[in-house]
């Protein structure tokens, strides 16, 4: 198979409910530790609140889900990893993080302009018995390694298995939907193959409302956003004069 998986996130539709963050964490066996904070926690998918900077009734707020952008060109994290624990999967375009190869030097985290990489500062832990509720398809990461969104690679894996059992070479796109896409209550996250010109996502990525964050860095992120609101689109530029607001930190 040969695909370039990516997303178009309709910011206008995002209500910031956080269902995607919960679904992502549950699917990927991300622990929730009582001692973790907004700066040390594990949120491979993080919904950020932004505003147009106004006060009173003209104030607008929007929510921007941030995750690994799966940069296609000169992928910053892949280039810097000293031991090939990060790679761009040739067949899918997914930037993969191999936890068992990672030595935890965190160089990739300093390289990522989107702050989409997270370090396991603690040993993963769940309240007694709760490990029975973990997703069997995903291995738990140990302390001291970096992790991030891999577009629910375990789901791609089972879709491939299903196709192989059926004797098919290509997976059924309906079998491979990342958890956040599935969880979104407004269908704001559209997932598909950007390499396929006929894929609706591919078309959407080229609409005038679509934009990418920090596109001028030249890393060709495969995560697009779109909005009808000009102030939201202005967030694509790092030095847009639009005032903005930070939610974490």
């Amino acid at each position: 198979m040969s695909a370039r998986y990516g997303m178009v996130i309709d910011v206008d539709r995002c209500t910031g409910c956080g269902a995607c963050m919960m679904a992502c964490a549950a699917e990927n066996n991300v622990p929730a530790l009582p001692q973790a904070t907004a700066r040390t926690g594990l949120t491979p998918l993080l919904v950020r609140k932004v505003s147009n900077g106004n006060n009173g009734e003209t104030r607008r707020e929007a929510f921007i889900p941030i995750m690994c952008m799966h940069c296609e060109h000169d992928t910053p994290c892949v280039k810097v990893c000293p031991q090939q624990a990060v790679e761009v999967d040739e067949a899918t375009g997914i930037v993969m993080q191999m936890a068992q190869r990672c030595l935890g030097c965190r160089y990739c985290m300093t390289a990522c302009p989107y702050h989409a990489r997270y370090f396991n500062w603690w040993d993963p832990a769940w309240p007694p018995g709760m490990e029975k509720s973990l997703n069997p398809g995903v291995a738990v990461r140990m302390r001291g390694v970096v992790e991030k969104c891999n577009l629910c690679h375990a789901r791609l894996h089972s879709a491939k298995e299903k196709a192989a059992v059926a004797g098919k070479r290509e997976i059924d796109p309906a079998d491979y939907v990342p958890a956040c896409v599935e969880a979104c209550s407004t269908n704001a996250i559209h997932f598909g193959d950007l390499g396929d010109a006929n894929d609706p996502v591919s078309k959407e990525a080229h609409s005038p409302q679509a934009f990418r964050l920090l596109a001028r860095l030249g890393t060709e992120p495969k995560l697009y956003y779109k909005s009808n609101e000009a102030w939201v689109r202005a967030l694509a530029e790092p030095n847009s004069p639009q005032a903005s607001e930070v939610q974490r930190g």
Binding site: C81, P82, Q83, R101, C102, L103, G104, V145
Partner: peptide, 21 residues
């Protein structure tokens, strides 16, 4: 480093494009 026991991985699986290597 988070996993000092794996420090030798850099010699085992070096990424020649990385400055850290």
């Amino acid at each position: 480093v988070g996993q000092p026991l794996r420090a030798w991985f850099t010699f085992w699986h070096p990424n020649t494009h990385s400055m850290l290597t």
